[in-house]
Nucleic acid binder design. Sequence first.
DNA 1: TATTGTTATACTCTATAACTATA
DNA 2: TATAGTTATAGAGTATAACAATA
Lengths: 158, 158
Amino acid sequence: MNGASTLNGGDTVADAPVRSEEAQYALGEQVGFYLRQANQRHVAIFAELMAEKLTTTQWAALAKLRDMQPCSQGNLGRETAMDMATIKGVVDRLVKRGLINTRPDTDDARRLVLTLTKAGEETIDRNRSAALDVSSQTLKPLSPGERMMLMELLQKIC
Amino acid sequence: MNGASTLNGGDTVADAPVRSEEAQYALGEQVGFYLRQANQRHVAIFAELMAEKLTTTQWAALAKLRDMQPCSQGNLGRETAMDMATIKGVVDRLVKRGLINTRPDTDDARRLVLTLTKAGEETIDRNRSAALDVSSQTLKPLSPGERMMLMELLQKIC
DNA sequence: TATTGTTATACTCTATAACTATA
DNA sequence: TATAGTTATAGAGTATAACAATA
């Protein structure tokens, strides 16, 4: 309550703004703070290296659809870790740009079947190399061993 | 990593969706894909454990402001890794909720000085423990050594 | 004038909730 | 009842432009 708060560093009597018992949460020690920043940096690198105006999620949808097509919208969402509402927005924008085609599933009228258009395939071909550069640029501050380690740790907490 | 072994010659008349030379980008091998998912999971845990309806960025702004107040809006943005437009939106919502006060800086009329309201301070006190739980829950799949390692690696790529 | 900070606008991503249609 | 998809809403993040105050 009053004194004896277990501050991280020394409990030296303060010349710093020390209010009673509240110095117990350091933003700079929370993993979420760095997850957000690492993601920010990755997105910035993506925007810089990818010539065409594609977002990370748009690229993920295109790349995954190439491997799965034909594929329902909901299924593509699951494979790219986007929920229904998100994948719908992403697909809508890609359809508007002429990179994805949609048609109803003849077997299940609820489903929307997606395929890449020719322009969609070409967009992937044109940008694949840059997309790989994004990953290596993001990991550039790390040694090869650290890169593998980071990938493993991230997958463990996903 | 498994090389180009399964690349089709391109002349295989397809009943499968086989296209020439394009199987060279695996979404599941890109660090950005896992950064996004790890962040997603962290945000979900935050929403689950924090009783009051606060977002991660709102909480970051509150927690940092507590340590820095009084503090200009731009400065708070830099300390929480948000750009001007982003921190403005976050602060606006916290002002609307009565958790932050604003006043013009008397020395520099360009600056907007922020302080926590009493309700803001109380909100931090009420939620600090839950916020710490969010971090440990996020890191739960990792051993203590792995947690430290992840924190270091994330900071290196920020 | 060049820089810093604020404000406003636009677009995208994310998630939730409510809803329709289908299985 | 459960599932697939749509729509609406809210918050966040980013980028850009316009503007005010300052150095």
